[in-house]
Amino acid sequence: MSRPVTIAFDVMGGDHGPAEVVRGAAQLTLDSDSIHVLLVGDRQQIDEALSQVRHNAEHLAVHHTPDWVAMHEKPTVALDQKPNASVLLAAKLVHDGEADAMVSSGNTGAGVLSCARTFSLMPGVRRAALATVYPTATHRGEKNDPFSLILDVGATVDATADDLVAFAVMGSAYARIISKNKDPSVALLSNGTEAMKGPPRVVEANARLSTLAGVRFIGNIEGVDIPKGTADVVVCDGFVGNVCLKMLEGVSETVIELARYAYKEKLLWRAGIAMLSSGIERIKEVTDWEQYGGAPILGFDKLFIKAHGRSRARAITNAGKVAAKAVSRDLTRVITEGLPKS
């Protein structure tokens, strides 16, 4: 039996309210004997949600707090005003050893700031990175995973070459452990594939990653390579990553809008889309982000999985599983061992 792992869930703040987070966490208590959940939030709302779902109370505890950070709130101000906000309290409970990792579907900034205020950066890591997964045309790893990992997508806007190297090590370790991809390919996102292309920090990072043991660095890739899945782990600074991610999301939404338009516009187009529907469903299935649950904040000595604000119970359950897997396989140690020694 694997060692017990406790995951703290910030129950408040998600788009669908506490009920979905509680449902997802409750499911986790049924799915695994080795995962315990610590629900941080308003006790009454948690108990109301628990009254509707099967759960194993032997693997579940509640930590009551009435405060939380809403999506629209400014993280710094909100956390200053609410020291017992559920996301900050969850981070403190992880720091104090009451839990091993945390999951939140609430305000991303508040989550990252809670980690920054509570956790320590790993030795050799100057800045944390927010990672996310993106569906690609290529499959990888034991699980035939269609997702590539992109980091950073917003935590560190002004990354140095050192930061980019650290992100590469962290992303590679995460892909090995979570995607069961034994030897993930890692690339730097730039404006050309040549090693000399890009701003000085990217050029310098390229040179250093080329000689770094333990990371299968394949060089630079361009934006077009992200959806192709050329690399399993795509490394960039938070500014570029965030712009890139938003653009990719925008393209997806536009394609859906165009399909809707076409469906309404002509009978022939509608018939065509209907004929493609099973294929579209299949694509939706294999690229379903809910199976991944959430995105990790990497670089701290404790793990934070940021679930999407829109997360339903299934995504929350999977976010908890990802967090538990990362803890039980000692992601922090694997990353620390892979970082270049100064």
Partner: peptide, 17 residues
């Protein structure tokens, strides 16, 4: 049955809740 401090204290809290 492998009960431990965590499962027992969680069980205790469940009754308290």
């Amino acid at each position: 049955a492998g009960y431990n401090l965590l499962t027992l204290s969680n069980s205790f809290q469940d009754l308290a809740r």
